[in-house]
Each structure stands twice: as structure tokens, then as C-alpha cells.
Computed example of a mutant assay.
Amino acid sequence: MAELLSLREAIDRFVSNGDTVALEGFTHLIPTAAAHELIRQGKQDLTLVRMTPDLVYDLLIGAGCAKKLIFSWGGNPGVGSLHRLRDAVEKSWPKPLELEEHSHADLANAYVAGASGLPFAVLRAYAGSDLPKVNPLIRSMTCPFTGEVLAAVPSVRPDVTVIHAQKADRTGNVLIQGILGVQKEAALAAKRCIVTVEEIVDDLQAPMNACVLPTWALTAVCVVPGGARPSYAHGYYERDNRFYQQWDPIARDRERFNAWVDEFIRGTADFAAYQAKLATQEAN
């Protein structure tokens, strides 16, 4: 059963140094507040899993929280490269970063296998691809029924999955609305799952066939309004395109990046304080 906790307490209790941590959300509902809190608490040696690493993982990598990245694409959407990711890979700053690259279909199926309690996923993929040459975990196998050669990859079973959603009820059931990525699969594949939400309500009023994560599948629910910014939360706020553009020059320079993290993340008590500080800066 999910506990209703502050994000600070949930990260402190349920994320340990050396854990495999998945922060999932596709286009919207990206758990930015949780990434900030991992940095505030100085979590180290994390293996980060995400289908589309963007600003949240650029932050975690640049802040020295990560030792490995399992992913299927990485970039600042609509802008360009993740400069902290590139610096870690190319120049080992602030520390070396191990990469494990997959395709989108591969990683999505690996989450499904993890959620299903299976050791690996099977899919039709990688014909003519060079990716298996750089990722030895992508194997081939022969179907025992048809003789067809298929790709096989290990399942993804994070120690902790963190997602953001619109709302939860008072018993900890969570409703996700809008575009779905692999939040459900990542949540069910994990040993522990933390969900940040915009609000707590008495009744989810979930429409038919909605994605509802039951409280028994979750570990903690944390109320963090705006917790997906600068990505958007369907029905709550829009994407902050300007922030994605502003991030590029911040992340390009090591000193500027460190100063930004020290001021806006390590220098704030929580995500609400961060949002207030950022709004004050933008108003001046």
C-alpha cells in the first residue's frame, strides 16, 4: 500500500546509493522534481534507466549521481545534445559514465518483461542494425516453435521507479491521463515505486479504460504541484519551451552548470522553493 509522504522523505527512505533507478514519462509528466531531490540528497553511483534521457538525466549525470545509463535515445528535445551526458562519456566529467544503449522497442519490451516477472524479452528487431555490436546484452535466439531467429534482451527490473501523474486519491491510487509512455510498465517492474502528483483528491473520477495504478502496486505518493516542469502535465500546465532553449548554454559550460545546480537545486529546500526562485529570476 502506498504511503502519502513528502518527496524528501520518500527519496531518503526508498532510494539508496548504488540503486538502479528509472525516471519515466514520455513528452509530459517527466518527474523533474524527483531528479532535483536525488541531487539535493547527494545520491551516488546510480544506474539510471530511461527510454528518452533528457534534461532530468543531464542534471543527474552532471551532478555526479550516475555511474551508468541504460537508454534508447538521449537529447534536449527540439534543441540538441545533452552536454553533461556528452562530457561524461567523452571526457569522464564529473566521473566516467557507462552506457548501455537499446532501441525504443527493445527497452519498452524489457520493461514489460520486468513487469511480467520474466527474465528476458523477445522481439523482432535489429535486422541490419549495428547496435548489437556495441551492446553484448542484445542476443539472438531461435523460436522453438517456428525456427525464426529473434532478438532477446534482459528484462528491466529497477530497484526504484519514479513517475509523475496528475492525481491520486487519499488511499494512494494514481490516475495518469494524456500520452502514456512506459510509466505503467516501469512502475510494475520495480521493487519500489514513488509517484509525484499534482494533487490529492477524494475521487479520481477516472474515465473508462483510464490508466490507474493501484495503491498496492506503489510504495509512496508525494504531492508536488508543478513537479513535471519544464515538461507539461496534461490538463494542468503547458510545456515550458523557453526553459529547454535556455538549458543549452547552461549545460554547455561546467562552471555555469555547477553554479546553476548550486543555486537552484542544492540552494533550495524543495521543488516549491525552486519554482519560486526560478520565477523570481525570470521576472527580473
Rank of each mutant, 00 (worst) to 15 (best):
A110F: 08
P230T: 05
T268G: 02
L4G: 06
C65K: 04
E198Q: 10
A206T: 04
S140R: 15
S140N: 15
P158E: 01
G74A: 15
Q275I: 02
T47D: 03
L213S: 02
E185S: 12
E98S: 10
L278D: 11
E238W: 11
A217Q: 13
A127P: 05
T161M: 05
G64V: 09
D58E: 03
P94N: 10
D106P: 07
N135Q: 07
A2W: 01
V221S: 06
W247T: 00
W216G: 13
L69V: 02
A273P: 01
G226T: 06
G235S: 05
E98L: 07
E282Q: 14
K191V: 11
P31K: 01
L38Q: 01
A269S: 13
V149N: 11
G181R: 01
L131F: 05
Q281F: 15
G18M: 06
E37W: 05
G18F: 06
R84L: 12
W93S: 14
L60H: 11
G62D: 09
G181F: 05
I194A: 04
Y236G: 00
I30G: 00
G62K: 00
L204F: 06
G64P: 08
G226P: 00
A108V: 14
V79E: 10
A127L: 12
N284F: 14
G42D: 08
V160Q: 00
G178V: 11
S81N: 15
L5R: 06
V153L: 07
C193L: 13
G181D: 00
N76G: 08
Q245N: 13
R229I: 14
Q44C: 11
P154H: 03
G18C: 07
Q281D: 14
L85A: 11
N76C: 11
N209H: 14
P94C: 08
G178H: 01
N135M: 03
A273W: 06
R252P: 08
G235M: 03
L60V: 07
A220K: 07
D12W: 15
N284H: 15
H102I: 09
P94D: 08
P230R: 01
D203A: 08
E101C: 13
N135D: 05
K67G: 08
Y244T: 04
C65D: 08
D202I: 00
Q166I: 10
R8P: 02
G172M: 04
D54E: 13
F71T: 10
A113K: 00
L175W: 03
A35N: 02
A108S: 14
G114A: 05
R13Y: 09
L123R: 06
R229L: 13
C143A: 12
L23C: 05
E199V: 09
A33H: 07
L131N: 05
D253R: 04
R139D: 10
A217D: 09
N135V: 01
K277I: 00
Y111K: 03
E238H: 12
C143T: 11
L60K: 12
H164D: 01
E100V: 13
R254P: 10
L118G: 03
I61M: 08
D58N: 04
F71L: 09
R170Q: 13
P31N: 02
A22V: 09
F71Q: 04
K184W: 10
N109H: 14
A35H: 05
P230V: 02
D45G: 06
E3Y: 15
V134A: 08
